[in-house]
């Protein structure tokens, strides 16, 4: 049973307000090491030098979208085992199918509650304490 504070998380979303909501939710769950990026390209650059345990990424972003980020992570051996949760809109079924092809660990539909976020994370990393 991992402690949330022992896990590092990166949230990737081009909207500051959404990153802020996720950051607050993660802190409420107990995460303390929370990093943020505004697009996939910036996230990938940071992950190469500073890997994290879990990436929570939006799909729809400029430069490198969520699928592109997921593919890059899975293709780069030092990062390929990073847990990855995709944020989607309710109509993005095709996006989720593509993400599954590229090895996404889970997904969550916006708008979501903190409880739902926690549930999705626990389904990937195990029950948190």
């Amino acid at each position: 049973m991992p402690a949330a504070r022992s896990l590092s998380v990166m949230t990737v979303d081009d909207q500051f307000s959404m990153r802020s909501l996720i950051r607050n939710g993660l802190r409420e769950i107990g995460f303390t090491d929370v990093r943020e990026c505004a697009n996939g390209e910036e996230a990938l650059r940071q992950l190469i030098t500073q890997p994290v345990h879990l990436v929570i990424s939006d799909f729809n972003m400029p430069k490198l979208d969520g699928i592109g980020l997921l593919r890059s992570i899975r293709a780069y051996p030092p990062l390929k085992n990073t847990a990855f949760i995709m944020l989607t809109g309710s109509t993005d079924t095709e996006v989720v199918k593509r993400a599954m092809q590229y090895g996404v660990n889970n997904y969550i539909v916006k708008p979501f509650t903190v409880a739902a976020l926690k549930g999705r994370i626990e389904a990937v990393v195990g029950k948190l304490n």
Binding site: K97, M100, V109, T113
Partner: peptide, 13 residues
């Protein structure tokens, strides 16, 4: 209400 679980036909977990 925010969906508690994913909507649509896809369910991973």
């Amino acid at each position: 209400q925010a969906p508690q679980v994913a909507t649509g036909e896809l369910e991973l977990f």
